[in-house]
């Protein structure tokens, strides 16, 4: 298994890469073979130098692909779509 944070240069397909970053080996039995064999070298090149593994990287940061859910707050900012707004409670 690769050292965390370092991608093995020989790992170019999705299945091998998942195992290299900590997924159980049985993962390759669970995903369709055409997916497991998917060439992800271009994707890995995008991650190169970012330090994906263990960084808590969000989907929105994956190679600049914007996938973050959120609502515009009217002031140019973005409020996370799943943020809970707690209300004041009075007991009668």
């Amino acid at each position: 298994m690769s050292e965390p944070g370092k991608e093995d240069a020989s790992v170019n397909d999705l299945g091998s890469w998942l195992i290299s970053v900590g997924a159980p080996e049985s993962i390759t039995d669970l995903i369709p073979s055409e997916l497991a064999r998917l060439d992800i070298a271009p994707l890995l090149a995008l991650f190169s130098g970012i330090g994906l593994n263990g960084s808590g990287l969000m989907g929105s940061e994956l190679g600049g692909v914007s996938v973050e859910s959120g609502l515009l707050d009217g002031a140019g900012g973005k409020v996370p779509a799943d943020e809970i707004r707690w209300l004041p409670v009075i007991r009668s």
């Binding site: 998942l18 970053v21 900590g22 997924a23 159980p24 993962i27 669970l30 995903i31 994906l52 593994n53 808590g56 990287l57 969000m58 989907g59 929105s60 996938v67 973050e68 859910s69 996370p80 779509a81 799943d82 943020e83 809970i84």
Partner: peptide, 24 residues
């Protein structure tokens, strides 16, 4: 279910749940 296992296995490397930190 295989799908549930797939999601679990994928969640760590991809940080599947980190884009929605509030409720999850």
């Amino acid at each position: 279910d295989a799908l549930a296992q797939l999601i679990r296995a994928l969640s760590a490397p991809f940080g599947f749940f980190t884009p929605t930190p509030g409720v999850l």
